[in-house]
Design a protein around this nucleic acid. Structure first.
Lengths: 203, 203
DNA sequence: GTCTATACGGCGATAGAC
DNA sequence: GTCTATCGCCGTATAGAC
């Protein structure tokens, strides 16, 4: 165990960097081993497979980033303010972690029996408290639409999908990377506005 | 050319079925050849590579399905009615073609220089007429938000993203396949409502 | 056009020596 | 723990018989 932690970490770090740089599928275990300065077999000694290594890195990334999101969802903020903060933080998170976006894409893409990662992603969405809050506001007549499932899907869609189709948006509008970033920044106010309007009682 | 069309079609059909069944990445060309009842070499005679075969199938699927969407976008329907029809048809299309969803996911996932497919996808979105319409309605003061790029991204997000996270939604809500289909069906009215509300002038 | 046969380099994974 | 050596599969390619 003396130096083992060190080697494991070297593999972990090298893989993280390469996955970010070239995507998961385009990174071979031989490359990872080379970058970590170790042998191909060690790669399999510490992590049984490339798949496991991927899961380990992904879980770490999610855990590191999901805490604040869950804290907001479970807080006792008012519904509308909660929505604003959630969207802000979530969009910032995805902006700062392109790796997270491409990882989720990779997982969703191979959506076959990937239960492990699904559970990890699900942990991002402990919506019990949030669901209760929507239902209660609905009972009080403070909001118009009261289906928490649909609302949460609406919210996630408006937050996350633009990142998934980044290349498409950039190509279509001749955006530079910086212009796309600006486009995303604009959504930090636009998205909550639309969501809240969809809830507010009609005039 | 006599029987060639037949063999090409057999490969095409076998690949389509396997891609749908197990995903593109998890389908090998040897499997495709076997299922088509032909030899591996023929696989390479008709389509130079698996990538080419993928592109051929994908282009066919898009062409088959995009016509009606483009027709709606370019029609002289009123803006709100146009939005309703577009969302309806688009959601129906994705419901009826799970292969299309998984293909787009595959392409977005490997979002690196996949210019060919990007162009194909872009063809789904010939938004010139639609963009003009939004700008004109804005000038007339008939709508509140007048950024066509943001609006189109909002619309696509609300339409398509739920399909991408299908497994997540089903897992989180303990949906059966039929319950998920019902969930999607509900969105055919919900999504246009939200979009139109985001445009309508405030009271 | 269709087939058999065979080859190449790269991949993820592993057995077994040290 | 770390290594070498090797396995079986992959996508791709081609030579050559029919």
């Amino acid at each position: 165990m003396a130096k083992s932690k060190n080697t494991e970490q070297k593999i972990f770090d090298a893989a993280t960097e390469l996955f970010l740089e070239k995507g998961v599928d385009r990174t071979s275990v031989r490359e990872i081993a080379a970058k970590a300065g170790i042998n191909l077999a060690l790669m399999n000694y510490y992590f049984r497979s490339k798949e496991n290594l991927f899961d380990a890195i992904f879980s770490m990334l999610v855990k590191k980033n999901s805490e604040e999101l869950i804290r907001i969802l479970d807080s006792d903020l008012g519904l509308f303010e909660k929505i604003r903060q959630y969207v802000h933080v979530y969009i910032d998170m995805l902006s700062d972690n392109p790796l997270l976006v491409s990882f989720v894409m990779a997982i969703l893409h191979r959506s076959r029996e990937r239960i492990t990662e699904m559970k990890v992603i699900s942990s991002l969405y402990s919506t019990d408290q949030f669901t209760k809050q929507i239902l209660e506001e609905g009972k009080k007549g403070n909001i118009r639409r009261t289906d928490p499932t649909h609302f949460f899907v609406d919210m996630l869609s408006l937050i996350a999908f633009p990142f998934a189709i980044r290349m498409l948006v950039m190509d279509k509008n001749n955006f530079t990377q910086e212009e796309f970033n600006q486009f995303i920044r604009e959504r930090k106010d636009r998205v909550p506005d639309i969501l809240i309007e969809s809830l507010k009682p009609r005039s």
